[in-house]
């Protein structure tokens, strides 16, 4: 399979998973706030392609794309959305707290910015343990307003820790546009002020993003200190929930049109033979149908799970 096919399959898989989530949502089988990545999948796919399986990512609550792109288990994710005991957190975390340690997906958090220092600390542990693992911290343009972002950048730069800071700039923090929160659209400058090399990248062009991410990851792994990538992207759906929200007034469909035209799925699809596309689409549909069937047929956690795992006691 060539690289375009791989990327197409991954973006499509995430897109179709989330479209299925949106389709099932009105049935109320998914009793969990979902923050869909639709439109933003290219960032996770491009960055994760540059990471090793043993590398680690720290996602946000808008984390379906990153979870899947890093290799998180699809069945466990859908079962989690359904609140089933076979879910990746046994039904206790839901959509905002996806985790798959084996795949290198550290847990996502509903509190914006909280996982940024976790990534830095995880990277510190790698330094002490003398591994060459790279940790990628994902966050949005809203998280950059949090003190934890600046404190984390400062410390990671100070110790030249192996962290790749990935800002998915989708221009909105819930409904507040970037320039209503920040005096300048200068996220890279902010990172640079800590001595962290920064680049603004096109989040829709997956092959290009992958190439740039590869160079950044290589540098981070070599011990040259953290890097900051601002990936420009656009959220197609509402902040939370399955629908579009262009009627709500805070942004217009006209504003979104150029992003629809540069939908990463569309850009990748254009580069593939329709026969190949059809084959990939069929395979992806099969896998997703299986995952939803798995979730449907899985049991809910038994009552004794309520108080299980509050603490970890030595055996």
């Amino acid at each position: 399979m060539n690289q375009t096919e791989v990327f197409y399959r991954q973006v499509l898989r995430i897109r179709r998973v989330e479209e299925e989530v949106a389709r099932v949502y009105p049935t109320d089988k998914i009793k969990s706030p979902v923050h869909l990545s639709i439109g933003q999948e290219g960032v996770s796919v491009g960055i994760c392609a540059a990471l090793r399986k043993t590398d680690v990512v720290c996602p946000t609550y808008r984390g379906h794309a990153l979870y899947l792109a890093k290799g998180g288990d699809l069945n466990a994710m859908i079962a989690e959305l359904y609140g089933k005991v076979t879910g990746c957190t046994r039904g206790k975390g839901g959509s905002m707290h996806l985790i798959d340690v084996a795949a290198g997906v550290l847990g996502a958090s509903a509190i914006v910015g909280t996982t940024i220092p976790l990534a830095v600390g995880y990277a510190y542990a790698q330094r002490v343990k003398k591994t060459d693992t790279v940790v990628a911290s994902f966050f949005g343009d809203g998280a950059v307003d949090e003190g934890a972002f600046h404190e984390s950048m400062n410390f990671a730069a100070l110790h030249k820790l192996p962290v790749l800071f990935v800002c998915e700039n989708n221009f909105y923090s819930i409904h507040s546009p970037q320039l209503a929160r920040q005096p300048h659209a200068n996220l890279c400058d902010r990172a640079s002020s800590y001595g962290v090399k920064s680049e603004q990248l096109d989040g829709c062009d997956v092959p290009e993003l992958y190439a740039r991410a590869q160079a950044a990851v290589e540098s981070v792994r070599a011990g040259d200190g953290p890097r900051f990538l601002e990936c420009m992207t656009y959220r197609f759906r509402e902040h939370v929930g399955p629908n579009e929200d262009f009627h709500a007034g805070y942004r217009s469909r006209e504003e979104a049109e150029p992003w629809f035209a540069r939908d990463p799925l569309r850009l990748l699809g254009q580069r593939l033979d329709p026969i190949v596309r059809t084959r990939i689409e069929a395979e992806v549909e099969l896998e997703i149908a299986d995952a939803f069937a798995f979730a449907e047929s899985s049991p809910f956690p038994p009552s004794e799970e309520l108080l299980a795992d509050v603490y970890l006691e030595a055996q």
Binding site: V120, Y122, A125, E151, S152, N154, L158
Partner: peptide
């Protein structure tokens, strides 16, 4: 200095760093 280190005045993030290090196998 890797196992006993001073921190910037960043209590919030440094707590996160301690937690992240614990997730990464340390006992901070």
């Amino acid at each position: 200095p890797e196992r006993c280190f001073d921190t910037p005045l960043s209590e919030d993030a440094m707590t996160g760093v301690a937690i992240g290090a614990a997730l990464g196998g340390m006992r901070p």
